[in-house]
Design a protein around this nucleic acid. Structure first.
Lengths: 284, 284
DNA sequence: GTATGTGAAATGTTTCACAGCC
DNA sequence: GGCTGTGAAACATTTCACATAC
């Protein structure tokens, strides 16, 4: 209805020469997939998993797009980079597409991931059941806290950071998640890189310096909130100031736009499902 | 050195008519700031805060850019959207620029934020000291767990979700953070929206359906890992397959690229600083 | 008839390079 | 001489619209 803003953003800055070149490896000759598309593949994959659970065998670009929260043109263009796995006049085979996507993302190798830092955030990540089903295996939990070292979380032993290099090498870990305070993030990062890690997901609010061949993605909570704040600011500025002239919609709006059940559950719903644990957890 | 990829991405999909139009409000007539730029302002702000702590009064686009992890041309263009707050031949005044930026992001109003879901992730977020100093005040913690309701976290009482609407209205909350399991995320979202929340940061791996006037940003941990996985996959594919022909760099690379101290601390460093808590926490 | 796959247009973002000011 | 501010070029992403295939 109204003007749109399909967001991109803040969460990450990487440096690498990986994505650009045309590599043409693996059996079904791979095209060069745009970054923006790669970032959305994960969304599609989740949507597909959901469909598979519902027993759907075939899906149109239109429905899959809706499920993933994008428009169908974008979805089709994105999928076209993986190759032609749809059938005109019919749609996409859920299983086939899922497989194709997992293979493109390299999720069929059950990649070993190390998680460093087991504060609340680290624990939340460690408890994330989604990893296993999504092609990752947390094969190392690392911290300094003597209270934690030696205990196990989800059947994985927490080891001392002194053993970091050793663990990374013996487990052949290429991907690591940094969930330590920013004061030690660079230090941990350096050691990971020296030990051979080539991809890092960083939750500390620091700009990590890494050599060229290492990929860093960053998740910055405060930044996310600030971006929201900016938009919110704009909104209130608008309704405050020109609360009359032209398109004075907003407050007066009939009921929304993306036409949806604004609140269909019984007022104080939320039966008994616990809200507390693993926000990240759950299905797909 | 090598080809670059300055990442954008996955973390969010919003729908709103806010950013597009030229609003021209507040005193110093505001231009229309591109989304990509908004997403980076938070980074700059953090870098500025760091500089201020070090007592730096003036900074060049070059150094600020380095501190924020972007290149100087981009930084200058970004700053130019806020107006001209630099001095040619000199640089930017740290205090002035900080102030300008905070005002642009709407951080001078100490926005009330509600946090719903106090599992590990929620606790990590609640414990994030950065919020207060960055213009946000967590003014409500909400969960269903009877063990939690009634207790306090960082001096804020945990309240039952039954009171959600009431709290949102009385505290005048416009921004909410959803850290509940995805099974109840949409439900919580609907109630927040009905109560008047207009901006949501969602940690549940679900596509939230919201009316047009509501902004949703999403942080998707599994997606982030999958994006890393994709790049990692490409890397190993390359070194495996064509480990000889043309540009067979990678493994043989002299030492990196972004020339930096690869590992300057004493081998098993990390003195005594606890790594465990609040990965997100700390300065700036 | 229906829905994919994709060139070509429109839009958005980054980088270049230099005029303008200190 | 040094550094900002910004048009204009290069590049990337999204959207359109339709030929193509079932």
């Amino acid at each position: 209805m109204t003007a749109h803003r399909d967001r991109l953003d803040a969460v990450s800055v990487s440096s690498e020469n990986a994505a650009a070149e045309s590599v043409t490896n693996t059996v079904h000759a791979e095209r060069t997939i745009p970054e923006a598309t790669v970032a959305r593949l994960a969304l599609y994959l989740r949507a597909l998993t959901g469909l598979a659970e519902h027993g759907t065998a075939t899906v149109s670009s239109e429905s899959l797009a809706t499920a993933a929260g994008v428009n169908s043109a974008k979805l089709r263009k994105d999928l076209s980079y993986l190759g032609s796995y749809g059938v005109r006049g019919v749609g996409y085979d859920v299983a086939l597409l899922t497989e194709q996507m997992r293979s493109t993302l390299g999720l069929n190798e059950n990649r070993a991931v190390a998680l460093i830092g087991l504060g609340h955030l680290g624990k939340a990540l460690a408890g994330y059941t989604g990893f296993a089903t999504r092609g990752f295996r947390i094969s190392a939990l690392i911290d300094t806290d003597p209270e934690l070292v030696g205990t196990t979380l989800r059947e994985i032993a927490v080891q001392h950071v002194d053993l970091l290099e050793q663990i990374v090498r013996s487990e052949n870990i290429a991907i690591a998640v940094i969930a330590v305070p920013s004061s030690v993030a660079q230090e941990v990062c350096d050691r990971l890189v020296a030990a051979g890690v080539t991809s890092i997901l960083n939750f500390a609010p620091t700009v990590l310096a890494v050599p060229d061949h290492v990929d860093v993605r960053k998740v910055d909570l405060a930044a996310e909130l600030q971006i929201l704040s900016f938009h919110d600011n704009r909104k209130s500025a608008r309704s405050d100031a020109q609360a009359g002239p032209l398109s004075a919609a907003l407050g007066t709006r009939p009921g929304g736009g993306t036409g949806l059940a604004s609140s269909t559950m019984g007022a104080t719903g939320l039966g008994s499902k616990a809200m507390s644990d693993t926000a990240i957890g759950s299905t797909a």
